[in-house]
């Protein structure tokens, strides 16, 4: 590996694996968008490294930039987690509604 150069592919794979681990079942729903957003973050990380290498920012500033990128990535993962929970909630309530309508139908009047 060239010194101070970010290897994009392994980094992308490792961020994707981390995201898959967090999102588990929801992953298949969000994978394409997640991959795009992770690529954007990696592009930003490359730029931070470049600014630091060209001495346009200090190490301290580079660390602060990394904090912003890390927090941004965290927000993205939280969003996917929330959307996954909404999907699960909808599925559970749809199943409960099916049971309700089955019982109502069996009884012949609206009990539930």
């Amino acid at each position: 590996m060239e010194k101070n150069k970010i290897e994009v592919k392994p980094l992308l794979q490792s961020m994707l694996s981390a995201s898959k681990e967090v999102l588990k079942k929801e992953w298949k729903h969000v994978a394409p968008v997640a991959e795009l957003q992770i690529k954007n973050i990696i592009h930003n990380l490359e730029q931070i490294a470049e600014l630091k290498l060209n001495k346009r920012i200090t190490e301290e500033q580079a660390k602060l930039h990394l904090t912003i990128q890390k927090e941004s990535f965290k927000t993205i993962l939280l969003s996917f987690e929330g959307i996954g929970i909404i999907t699960a909630e909808k599925a559970i309530n749809a199943a409960l509604n099916t049971v309700k309508s089955t019982i109502n139908k069996a009884i012949g009047w609206r009990l539930l």
Binding site: N40, I41, Q69
Partner: peptide, 15 residues
Amino acid sequence: EIELIQSAFDQTMTA
């Protein structure tokens, strides 16, 4: 440097 920050901020707000 500002574009870098804005890019991350846009991603945060989109999420």
